[in-house]
Design a binder for these strands. Structure first.
Lengths: 248, 248
DNA sequence: AAGTGTGAAGTCTTTCACAGCT
DNA sequence: AGCTGTGAAAGACTTCACACTT
């Protein structure tokens, strides 16, 4: 194990590899090569091996990787064996969808508390049987329940304030759905989910298109095409990383 | 204007700059320097100037940038003056939240059609007065209504199939919420929103933490810390870019 | 024969630092 | 005097290519 700096992109990819390994496990496939794994996750095989090499040597030369073993290793690296407790702040459209989102529980992410500024909501129960609390109880609940992660799904005006509060309460991981670049101390990890920015990148691509589609009559092509987003979570801009998804 | 390749990260940042410029406009601020703009968007001032320089020279030396003018320029670069038509496929938890999401319309992204595989949903109206159609009508509707972008919010099992269909129907931009790495032709732009991957990166950071919080007794620290996600949308892995967010 | 692990090369992105306008 | 625009340097990430192991 070389003690090098690990690219943020590597962590994202680890999560992707892990997901595919789970599929292989279900299909009772015992061994997989970097070439196979890489093909299914859209990366270069050397990239995959390099990613793993940051953490150790998990393969067998001439053979490949033990599926169960590698999954276990990645799980340990990412800290997935632990169940993380999450506080949801903002029970609006998106907050509600996240509450109902089954995948979270399946992956060890449990929303154990929900908060909303709307006094009509406070005191009511969610469909998942969580009592919505007023924002004023945020800090106390986070500490009392030992909550690890905050999901911020409040309107942009109040997002920074909520972030400040959860940070003060000791939270070290934030998943932010508010369309604002939140400022947090460097020991706090934050990931942004900003639909509008993503749509803007699609808009850019569509606007650039040497249109194959007749309808958009493109006068000229003033700007050059963008470098492939193909590297994934390349995480440019402040904290804009990759992107992943959750559905249903 | 140098005719160079444009980093994907640059496009993400452009969207972020644009958002802040709108705020300045509302506050009736007429001129802004790269230093100010950069500070509020968490980037290096040189980075911001370089980003803009890919597209032209929009500032005045010794002065700064005209807020309205720069906003207008970025709007043109990103293609934001156009109203894009969107088809939503999958009216589950997330799909429903997206339908209700007001920000989309405000930014020129209109969901004009919705589809779901559930026969009980087909024919019913959404709260936004869109009639949900069966998936079988996907291709025809996309063509008939000249739809530009598809938002995929179906379960992972059917996501690739849906992607194939919309691509065949001529769609060139996809926002994918299914936790699957979709394969699409290179002339189709895709952005992924994968909550689980993002949470996994938070999990990694939390698990690494030289815990300031007493409770997690950390035996040792086997892995090195990750390179700052601070560059934002650094977009590592295939298509995992950054991340932005939408709230409420 | 096959496939991993990895130094070194290559490529891409960011940051520096300063010339050049206003 | 101030701030942009940008080549050049620095830094980060990816890919190559091959030694090494089974």
């Amino acid at each position: 194990m070389k003690e090098n700096k690990i690219p943020a992109a590597t962590i994202l990819r680890l999560s992707i590899y892990y997901r595919f390994l789970q599929e292989l496990l279900q299909d009772n496939i015992g061994v997989v090569s970097s070439a196979q794994l890489a093909k299914h996750t859209n990366v270069n095989p050397a990239q995959l091996r390099k990613d793993l090499s940051y953490f150790g040597r998990f393969g067998v030369r001439g053979v490949g990787y033990d599926v169960a073993g590698l999954a276990e290793q990645i799980s340990m690296i990412l800290g997935l064996e632990k169940t993380w407790k999450i506080a949801l702040i903002g029970v609006g459209n998106i907050g509600t969808a996240l509450l109902k989102h089954k995948r979270f529980n399946e992956h060890g992410y449990n929303i154990v508390a929900a908060f909303d500024a709307n006094p009509d909501l406070a005191g009511t129960k969610t469909s998942t049987d969580i009592t919505i609390q007023p924002i004023s109880e945020l800090a106390d609940t986070i500490k009392a329940q030992d909550i690890d992660i905050a999901i911020i799904a409040v309107p942009p005006e109040s997002a920074q304030q909520v972030a400040d509060e959860v940070v003060k309460a000791g939270i070290k991981g934030i998943l932010n759905f508010a369309p604002v670049r939140l400022k947090v101390p460097s020991d706090v990890s934050i990931q942004h989910v900003d639909f509008t920015i993503l749509l803007d990148t699609l808009s850019y691509s569509l606007a650039q298109n040497v249109n194959t589609r007749e309808k958009h009559v493109q006068k000229d092509k003033p700007f050059k095409n963008v470098q492939g987003w193909s590297r994934a979570h390349s995480w440019p801009v402040a904290n804009a990383n990759f992107v992943v998804s959750a559905s249903q």
